[in-house]
Design a protein around this nucleic acid. Structure first.
Lengths: 188, 188
DNA sequence: GTCTATAATTTGATAGAC
DNA sequence: GTCTATCAAATTATAGAC
């Protein structure tokens, strides 16, 4: 239950996530992350040889955690509309509790200037998001064409990422909540 | 008509825009911008003393150009639905022609780690966008409450910024076009 | 307005002791 | 696995000549 049970690797990743969600890949350094964890930068290099290794591992862990929180989109015990609300709520939590941008959103914004490994992890986050939503949406509209479900899924992801981006720059929760509500209303 | 008519300041701003739309504020250097323009970094400092001055001026010019391309939202000669389509088309142009992220979108994503001046310019871009769309939307629905027009405006901005973000990381124009089409369909 | 030169700092990364 | 020490390169920024 205490900190000593969390591995150093995981504490490094947690610190890197916080830093990257603030300033992006180019906005943090090994020394800063090391200081956050309470070790030296050489020790960070021991766990993650290069900066791109740390960033890719952090993005991967972020995506895994996100998808785990979403759960199974085919869970028969869950109303598909409740699952859509859960999706929106997960972004709301990331914004209102962490008060930081979506990690893969920041990385996506600077994707053209990122090491390939890192871009790949960010891409995967969006693919997983769209696939999860597509599956849920098809459950709400059995007759819908797959292409329509995909288009709707993509629009939801885009709306939520854009909402976080705007909330991040304005610091205004009200705007975020308005957009989140609009997205949810689309499924009433 | 030739390059010599464009001031050095403007060429520096153009280079900085390209660089920042690729790697963000922390992803470019004075030396890179100077090399793009064909001068030395000390000369860039002559025009823009500090990095934040250059970034803020670049974001400001970007927002001005964007709003100028949108035109007057109250122009009686323009159908409000055509204006909404123009708004979407402007993002499409930024994505499909420039093949780069929206400058103020990247800056918004890393806003928490930006000099105040720069954040302020990015905020202004979003305020101007929402105000322009709000005005146009109220023309399409004379009876609508102001708050509903604002909520719809914010959702459009969020959707388009999110669409650019996803297109930027996936390199996939199809997804961008799908989302843009969905946004446009919301006004048919 | 542009240049050379350079200061001062930070950065990613490595070698090798413990 | 963590540390000290260090490197080579890059970074923002300034001083002063032309």
């Amino acid at each position: 239950m205490n900190d000593s049970q969390i591995s150093t690797s995981d504490r490094i990743i947690a610190a890197a996530e916080k830093r990257m969600r603030t300033g992006g890949f180019h906005g943090f350094s090994f020394r800063e992350v090391a200081a956050d964890v309470g070790i030296k930068s050489a020790s960070v290099h021991h766990h993650f040889p290069a900066k791109e290794d740390l960033a890719a591992a952090t993005a991967h862990a972020y995506a895994e955690r996100f998808m785990a929180a979403l759960g199974d989109p085919n869970d028969e015990g869950q109303n598909p509309l409740a699952l859509i609300r859960r999706y929106i709520a997960l972004f709301s939590k990331a914004q209102l509790e962490d008060r930081r941008m979506c990690l893969c959103g920041v990385l996506a914004s600077e994707a053209l200037d990122l090491p390939e490994q890192v871009t790949t992890e960010a891409q995967r986050f969006f693919e997983l998001n769209v696939d999860w939503l597509k599956t849920v949406i098809r459950r709400t509209e059995k007759t819908a064409k797959p292409r329509d479900a995909e288009a709707r899924a993509k629009q939801i992801v885009a709306s939520m990422e854009g909402a976080m981006m705007i909330a991040n720059v304005t610091g205004d929760d009200c705007t975020f909540n308005q957009i989140a509500a609009s997205v949810a209303d689309g499924f009433k």
